[in-house]
Design a protein around this nucleic acid. Structure first.
Length: 427
RNA sequence: GGGGGGAUACCAGAGCGGUCAAAUGGGACGGACUGUAAAUCCGUUGCUUCGGCUACGAAGGUUCGAAUCCUUCUCCCCCCA
């Protein structure tokens, strides 16, 4: 398998430094990608970089995952229009641990020569004094060179300014590359296309400091066809951590991919080969309403991230919530089964007494539970016809609900819009 | 250190004594259509016991009445040194 070829046909390749392909074809190469520790979990946006590493390792190369304990303290100005908030050291350590745990699931850390490795740049920066840094590293790169980077130009031209700290970021990242090159024979850095400038500062540093040679590959940033940001939904980011984004929500995220995006995403986020993808696409084009692509995509990623069992649960929940199954189906299930079906769906507990005398829809959804943040909003949305209880639309905000509507004597299913479900448990 | 400009809802941005819970655009959410798609069209976008209440950087003041005027403070930007 040819790594660059693989990226190319999958449409992932953005830019590649001359000579890189030749180097990779000669034999095993060590390469790295840096991950930003701004949260304690990676999200689907980072998944593209993880996929790059997986391909890299499958092609017989040795991947290094760098978690940026040091760079995380500084903040990357790339793509940011304003100065970042700095993370505390505690928060950073916590985030690093979470990310390490996730990366371990995707890469093989025990397969001989090309086993993946995890490194933390804090290890080589923590005892590197400021004076030594500006003497040994800063001396080699001119301010002129640094100022020419787009990420810097944009910020200097903008109106929020840029601190010296963020300005230094590219040097810090550049030194990472130098360090890995020097100590781990790491000749290639990969990253999203917004990282090109930072990566090149690294190859430049390697050349000027040690007259060495290092290479760069960047991948396409994931965009949606409609131009909006990839990886966000009403609920916010889609995380890989099931505590933050349930496997059901995760599955739903991919299932809801638009037709257009699905074609690019199967290439980027699955390991299906070319024939498989083309045949899936043919199926999709023949019968778009079946959403063959979305289902294959969602299945593959959900299993890889959360495992087979979680995928099965997500499917069951999805089929019940979006399929033709009537709400009465719940009557046939025992409590454990109901809860399993609604795992990943937000739930609320209310007391049976609340229902004893009947409760108005608004109070049920905005007071007894937090389906809505305020009564006003609940009323508006009910008036707009966007709210349902037990799959039946609420007509007016004053509609009264009592024990009779409970499914299984205990459950109520509220729907806000078409896709947002809530389980209300009365006991 | 001197001079100037600014801070308005999620964001951008109008308003410059009452008719302002605040134009417009974007975003977000909801509806219709569909395939849990895209595009399109429509609606909503401070809280409320529907009497009101809290809001235009913060605190005071003027006024019957302030986002709008005055004072002080905080922060941001620009120019000069």
């Amino acid at each position: 398998m040819n790594f660059v070829e693989e990226l190319r046909w999958r449409g992932m390749l953005h830019d590649i430094m001359p000579g890189t392909e030749e180097l990779l074809n000669k034999g095993m190469v060590s390469g790295y990608i840096g991950f930003d520790p701004t949260a304690d979990s990676l999200h689907v946006g980072s998944l593209a970089q993880i996929m790059t590493m997986i391909h890299f390792q499958r092609a017989g190369h040795k991947p290094f995952a760098l978690v940026g304990g040091a760079t995380g303290m500084v903040g990357d100005p790339s793509g940011k229009s304003a100065e970042r908030n700095l993370l505390s050291e505690d928060a950073l350590q916590h985030n690093l641990a979470g990310i390490r745990g996730q990366l371990e699931k995707f890469l093989d850390f025990d397969c001989g020569a090309n086993s993946a490795r995890m490194v933390n740049n804090y290890d080589w920066f923590k005892d590197f004094s400021f004076l030594n840094f500006i003497r040994d590293v800063g001396k080699h790169i001119t301010v002129n060179y640094m100022m020419a980077k787009d990420s810097v130009k944009n910020r200097i031209g903008g109106d929020t300014g840029m601190s010296f700290t963020e300005f230094s970021y590219q040097l810090v990242q550049g030194y990472d590359f130098y360090y890995l090159w020097k100590h781990h024979n790491c000749a290639l850095q990969m990253g999203g296309s917004d990282q090109w400038g930072n990566i090149v500062t690294g190859t430049e540093l390697i050349r000027r400091k040690d007259a060495g040679e290092a290479f760069a590959i960047t991948t396409q940033l994931i965009k949606k066809a409609d131009g909006t940001k990839f990886g966000k939904t009403e609920g916010g980011n889609i995380w890989l951590d099931p505590e933050k984004t349930s496997s059901y929500k995760f599955y739903q995220f991919w299932l809801n991919t638009s037709d257009e995006d699905a074609k690019t995403y199967v290439r980027i986020f699955t390991l299906f080969d070319r024939e498989t993808i083309e045949s899936l696409e043919a199926d999709q084009d023949a019968a778009p309403h079946l959403r063959t692509l979305q289902k294959a995509l969602a299945k593959d990623i959900t299993i890889r991230v959360h495992g087979e069992a979680e995928y099965e649960k997500a499917i069951k929940s999805s089929e019940f919530l979006f399929g033709n199954t009537g709400i009465e189906f719940l009557n046939e299930l025992n409590d454990a089964e109901v809860l399993a079906l609604f795992e990943g769906v937000p739930n609320f507990n209310i007391s049976l007494n609340d229902l004893a005398n009947g409760i108005a829809a608004v109070d049920l959804l905005a007071a007894s539970t937090s389906v809505f943040p305020s009564k006003g909003e609940a009323k508006k949305m009910i008036a707009g016809g966007g709210v349902a209880v037990n799959k039946v639309k609420i007509n007016t905000a004053d509609d009264v609900y009592n024990k009779d509507v409970l499914i299984n004597g205990k459950y109520l299913v509220a729907q806000k819009g078409k896709k947002n479900y809530f389980l209300i448990i009365a006991e």
